[in-house]
Amino acid sequence: MAGGGSGSTLPAGRKATLAAFLQELRATRRATWGNPFGYLFIAPALILYLIFNVWPIIRGFLMAFTDYRFLYPETRWAFNGLANFQEMVNDKDFWFSLGISIRYSLMVIPTVIVLSLFLAVIISRVRHLTAFYRWVVYLPTILPIAVTFLMWKEFYDPRFGFINANLKLLGIHPLPKWLGSTKTALPCIAAADVWRSIGFPTLLFLIGIYNINRELYEAAAIDGANAWQQFWQITIPLLRPTFMLVLVLNSAILGATEQVMIMTGGGPQKATLTIGLYLYNIAFTYGDLRLGYAAAISLVLGLISAGFSAFWFKVLREE
């Protein structure tokens, strides 16, 4: 390619040598690197991924060991060793909100699993309309998260919400305050979250059930096992990989942020201040915008989630 323009100024003999050399170069390059179009084709996707996905992972990790406050740009690389983690140990709000998040996860995850398994088993038993049922069960999941939780907020409204308006008709006098009470606020948000997140696990369980060999059930039926026994002896054990997948995917619930941000903003009296919202506030709402400390909390949270995932992986892995 390079030889083309300057060809006329070179003697014919050298031109031929150059051409041969270039051809050889091209051949070796092709032998070592393969089709150059390959790199060209993956470049745009790879560059986007490196800038907006890989870099934030690296930077987020490094940031956890700095005292970066966004309003003071000079603190950007102010590494402070493990000081953030020491601060965390003594941070009462950290432990408090971590407790809230664990309680929240314990409300949401088991409920999601039981209900989605139930729905999947039922859907797997019908012959018609399965596509329609799948569609409907998944519908709440695709709604914008803000729409979902604002809708539930209106639904729980103490005066005009659907629940209390109907309870009033039934003559129940001290109407529950739902999101307004420290006792019921967290379960209410958890219920809305279950409603929203049930779709995907249902699909996963459904795929798992479809993949179980029908003959197993027929053999069990011949041996006299009833539907209940079949469910416990065949369906549940063979769904192990699906259980693992669902649990791993659901461990993200520990970081629940938007749910409480939209519905209660952490209130009443911090009753719904999840760790996700707490670290979000530290990073983007309070004071100096302490991105460093928030990144450290986020890292701990990520490690806890990864720990849970690893635990489930070990427990449920097929022998």
Binding site: F52, V54, W55, P56, I57, G60, Y280, L291, A294, S305
Partner: peptide
């Protein structure tokens, strides 16, 4: 594989970026 690395601090890093 990189998909499974948790995005801890990702939001803060994105804000900076």
């Amino acid at each position: 594989v990189s998909m499974f690395i948790p995005r801890s601090g990702g939001l803060m890093a994105l804000y900076e970026l």
